[in-house]
Nucleic acid binder design. Structure first.
Lengths: 340, 340
DNA sequence: TTGAAAGCGCTAACAT
DNA sequence: ATGTTAGCGCTTTCAA
């Protein structure tokens, strides 16, 4: 492995000069610059970032830790983060905790040990411990989900409002028995979205029916099972599902049991689904501004890097309701239309 | 930041002893172990992997560089790789080149500079240059796509055979004018799959119709445009599309123009699509063994790490044809059934 | 403008 | 079993 020393020897200069040339620091005589560059090429020298990072006590890698790389919601965010990182000369690496707190802790430990320049995390649980990072002064930003007991920058979607809009829309479409499949109680996104659901019902003078609420696990299987359970016990005529994978599960149950959407049951899901318009019926969703969430997370990371003492802030972004076929029965179709 | 020195001082031992305890090396008196552990806790010491990696000249991060983190094909592979990495005490980080050769080169450079312990790459182009990694002796494995001019381990799917099976299936279903939308000519997967398509036609005594072949870019937009072009110029009655995103694009064109699948046009795509069974009509696909591809890539990386002089090998995995609705018209439906 | 040299935090060879 | 110490490759003061 070629080192800076060998380059220096080959170019007949000091290592300091080589370093200056490599980093475009200070002023170096053009002749020396040329010699150094020639040596670098001749020896196929490649910078050793490990040594460099150690010496400078800083790195240029940002980590994004997500609970599921297969969930398009998370990968979409990465793009926004990458664009900011690139401007700052950083690279972004994605780590998959797979909803496993142990794996997540491993990645947090790894990011801490590697002294990553910043970490964005969508935590598997609100109890996720990021102190290893915070203690080292590594900028941390919580995306999508708040981190309990950690005073860090946070980027959230307007979960409650989004859920309220979705539920309100189902009411407007004439559905009467609107169910909610939400996530695990400890997940902030799950409880916020459930809150929005309840609020919409109350606003419309409806009762909040405990038998129409199910807590599942944010995964496809959970949505599937919850849908079955709802149909078996509670005769809903619509359902609001609080994340994309569970929505897919719920839909699968409906489709495979010949239950017609939106005629028999109206469906609105939280989060976009890729190719939502290829799914039949096309799916109404509450969309989160994923790219912006990533971008803002990146900006917060950057800001924290420049001023470590900055007060952490929480940014809440608006969601938008995309009304498609799964919640819009033809005027004649809904079983009990409330309004024309 | 707490260092090993401070831990040593606090525990009243040498740094060597601390290091031994931290790494479970050599034998250390239980009393000292206890004192060291206590000091580690008391000071909230966190290992500095940067220094450690420098000293040991080895790291424990594997990088996966893919051309699109949003493509489920790639994220599925990551899981297989992760499982192998975990056994070896490595963490996997995912880098998104976004089909951009420049970004890809940046990530390759970063992985080289950081002296990553291994790199799996699904290259944006066969011309992708991995010499920065190879020169440093970093194990590299090409997944999904071969790397031209680089003598590295390679894990591929049986592209040609898969394409041949898909095309043959369309022939069997009675389709006559079977088109192919493939990727850019420089992509190995594109040409291999095209080859399989041609071969299947010849085998069935069909001509290979140049006007029914389109080269697109492996992205959704490309599939959409190619589908339009085919319909405008060449009146196909079936189409084999060589990757998942282009298939989505092609389907979107068909759906939005009221062209019925599989009645008006039969469709088979390469790669699975998440929730393929929610898409209407459900999509016939050539599925790749993604998890195994990742797992085997991981094993090759591991093998290369242990024996750097091992000859690189190429592993080819079988694909499987999943026949769903998009290619199976009801017996009465196909416009010209070839067989009952 | 250039070079000499210290030292980032850690591990491992060597000495005890 | 434990400690001393050199040095991984680099950047950056400091001196010339």
């Amino acid at each position: 492995m070629t080192t800076i020393q060998e380059v220096a020897r080959h170019a007949k200069v000091s290592t300091a000069t080589v370093s200056r040339v490599l980093n475009n620091h200070g002023s170096v005589h053009p002749d020396l610059v040329r010699r150094v560059r020639a040596a670098v090429d001749a020896l196929a020298y490649q910078r050793n970032a490990v040594a460099r990072n150690l010496r400078r006590s800083q790195t240029s890698l940002w980590a994004v830790i997500v609970s599921d790389v297969g969930n398009p919601f998370f990968t979409a965010m990465v793009r926004g983060l990458e664009d900011v990182a690139q401007q700052r000369g950083c690279s972004v690496v994605l780590c998959n905790s797979d909803e496993d707190p142990e794996k997540e802790a491993d990645y947090i430990a790894a990011a801490a040990a590697e002294r990553m320049a910043g970490v964005a995390i969508s935590a598997a649980s609100t109890a996720t411990d990021v102190t290893p990072l915070v203690d080292l002064g590594i900028p941390v930003v919580a995306i999508d989900r708040r981190l309990r007991g950690a005073n860090v920058d946070t980027v959230l979607a307007d979960n409650q409002r989004g859920a309220e809009a979705a539920t309100g829309h189902l009411v407007d479409m004439g559905y009467r028995r609107i169910a909610c499949i939400t996530g695990p109680p400890q997940a902030m996104t799950a409880s916020e979205r459930l809150k929005g659901y309840k609020r919409a019902l109350r606003r419309h003078g409806r009762e909040v029916p405990p038998d129409l609420i199910r807590h599942a696990d944010f995964r496809e299987r959970g949505g599937y099972d919850a849908m079955r359970s709802l149909l078996a016990d509670s005769a809903p005529d619509a359902v609001f599902v609080t994340n994309n994978l569970m929505t897919v599960g719920a839909l699968k149950y409906l489709v495979s049991h010949g239950i017609r959407v939106p005629r028999d049951i109206g469906v609105v899901g939280f989060d976009e689904i890729p190719w939502a318009d290829l799914i039949r019926p096309s799916l109404s969703t509450v969309a989160q501004p994923t790219y912006d969430m990533g971008r803002i997370a990146g900006q917060l990371l950057a800001a924290h890097s420049s001023s470590p003492d900055k007060q952490p802030e929480t940014v809440v972004l608006r969601t938008s309701l995309n009304i498609r076929a799964s919640s819009t029965p033809a005027p004649s179709e809904p079983r009990r239309a409330r309004q024309a």
